[in-house]
């Protein structure tokens, strides 16, 4: 059985054209297969510039990879027929990071909810359409009567983002790519919106790719995590394992920097100041080498493969050289299904 959506060995390079001096590798040799069965929530976590938004855009077909393929139900996105595109567009939904750019300021916010209903024929009558919209809005904690009929500038960024989540819910897709969906929502409503995503996953069997820089919310809703650093996978696998016993030095830094909601557990300020004695030369090296406290000469010479340190976890770091190495496209094989996750 082929995966719902699969990326194989994708690399995305920006710039480097005729008039630019340098190019940026946003994503390097990344492979991931997203099965529709069992439906899971996979978090993609990394800092700005780690390539996570580029990955989201490639998964959505908004960006073409420089190298590699994106397959929807086994077919290359580039070669889909019109009917297949239509079904791809409905099956794979998105919630973008920025709730300001997605609205046309001349339309009322109803437009973003009406348009997909009309486009995909989700409702047969006006009352039915209204009911669908109101249910979706209430599910994300908005009052329909205070929301519909407004223009985007009359709503806060948080409210606008919740409408975008409601829009994705309307479609009952098989996969939602959520790119920082709650970074602009209030903390008290974050839980509600993430709970909605969880609920969609459990009740409607929708898989979710949850792209975020926030490890805490990722931990709360996901089974598996992919930690990205500078376009490559640093660590991946069962989120419980990765969060509790991180193996890659970057993951350790990341987790040490999370502000814990407990005044007696101080964040780990020493980890952040760690710098390395090994200088990076060229691109074929571990991307983290310049910041890594454990850097070895070897790290600057070659890119570490994914070492399987546990049955359900991979770490791309030479510290774990004794573990068996896996090919990039085998990453998803260590992922856990729902309910299996350790914690």
């Amino acid at each position: 059985m082929s995966a719902l959506l699969e990326v194989q060995h994708i690399t995305k390079v920006f710039g480097g054209g005729l008039f630019s001096r340098s190019s940026t590798v946003a994503l390097e040799n990344f492979s991931l297969a997203i099965a529709s069965e069992p439906p899971t929530i996979t978090a993609v976590v990394g800092e700005s510039g780690s390539g996570k938004t580029t990955l989201a855009r490639i998964l959505l077909g908004l960006e073409t990879p420089t190298e590699g393929q994106v397959l929807y139900q086994g077919k290359d996105l580039q070669g889909l027929s019109t009917a297949e595109w239509h079904s791809f567009r409905r099956d794979v939904q998105v919630v973008f990071q920025d709730p300001f750019e997605v609205y046309n300021p001349f339309y009322k916010v109803d437009h973003v909810l009406n348009a997909p209903i009309a486009r995909f024929g989700l409702a047969n009558s006006r009352p039915e359409r209204q009911k669908l919209i109101e249910e979706a809005l209430e599910a994300v904690g908005l009052r329909p009567e205070n929301t519909l009929g407004r223009r985007p500038h009359q709503l806060s960024g948080g409210q606008r983002q919740r409408i975008m989540v409601a829009r994705a819910l309307l479609m009952r897709p098989r996969l939602i790519v959520a790119d920082e969906p709650v970074s602009m929502i209030d903390a008290s409503l974050r839980a509600t919106v993430l709970g909605n995503l969880r609920q969609l996953n459990e009740e409607f069997g929708i898989s979710v790719i949850y792209i975020t820089h926030d490890l805490t919310t990722a931990y709360q809703i996901s089974e598996n995590i992919i930690v990205m650093y500078s376009g490559s996978v640093a660590e991946a696998g069962d989120i419980g394992l990765v969060v509790k016993q991180p193996q890659h030095p970057y993951t350790q830094l990341l987790i040490g920097s999370v502000p814990q909601p407990d005044p007696d557990r101080r964040w780990n300020t020493e980890a952040a100041t760690g710098s390395s004695t090994v200088a990076a030369d060229g691109s074929a090296c571990c991307k983290f080498v310049a910041r890594c406290p454990h850097a070895m000469p070897k790290c600057a010479e070659d890119m570490p493969p994914l070492y399987q340190t546990d049955p359900h976890r991979l770490a791309a770091c030479y510290l774990h050289e004794e573990s068996p190495a896996l090919q990039a496209e085998e990453m998803a094989s260590v992922f856990v299904g729902r309910g299996q996750a350790g914690s």
Binding site: G141, R143, A187, S188, L189, R190, A191, T192, L194, G195, R198, L215, T216, T217, Y219, Q220, I221, V243, I255, V258, Q260, P261, D262, S343
Partner: peptide, 22 residues
């Protein structure tokens, strides 16, 4: 109380509960 309870942590997976109502 509800505000503190709705704060997710890396310690344990909780039920995701926001503050009821608006």
């Amino acid at each position: 109380h509800l505000l503190i309870d709705s704060v997710p942590s890396l310690e344990e997976k909780d039920d995701l509960e926001g503050i009821p109502g608006l």
